[in-house]
Design a protein around this nucleic acid. Sequence first.
DNA 1: TCATTGATTTCA
DNA 2: GAAATCAATGAT
Length: 170
Amino acid sequence: MSRTGRHFFLGDAVTVARMLPGMDIVIASDNLPVRYMITETEAYLGEEDRACHASRGKTKRTEVMYLDGGRLYVYFVYGMHWMMNIVTGPENHPQAVLIRGVSGFTGPGRVTKALGIDRSYNGEDLTMSERIWIEDKGYHPELLSGPRVGIGYAGEPWISKPWRFMIGKY
DNA sequence: TCATTGATTTCA
DNA sequence: GAAATCAATGAT
């Protein structure tokens, strides 16, 4: 059992998004570690990417994405759902990977509900935290990819970028 | 297909 | 300040 360190998260969001499915999120909020295998991710790639929240510059909400990779970017949307993202890339390269699914829970809102993720996890450092981290068990299955969900406002070419990844095969 | 729901952002 | 927006979900 080994916690994934900083180096892994300094890669670009697409690279990290492709590596995460098959890896585990370990959450120890009640002092008892519980593992969930990541099954689906999406990459949001910097200020250029109109679908990325950082495309309109640094704000109070997006500032955590400007730190170096390995931290959580957690935000609230539609008045009811928390979204959990992992910040990637070096400092001042705002990128993140949305966790869309884990074993047993499909959909980003359901994932955060299952894991008990809320605002208190925003900025949490996955390389240091006592309550949440990532482990690589060496399982890296074949992935399917496709366009990201719910970002029609971003326009082309961003709508069509195949930056959604999920475990599966044809 | 529609209602829900409130923080964040944008516009004035 | 007020108005619009929104990485979604569950019910109808």
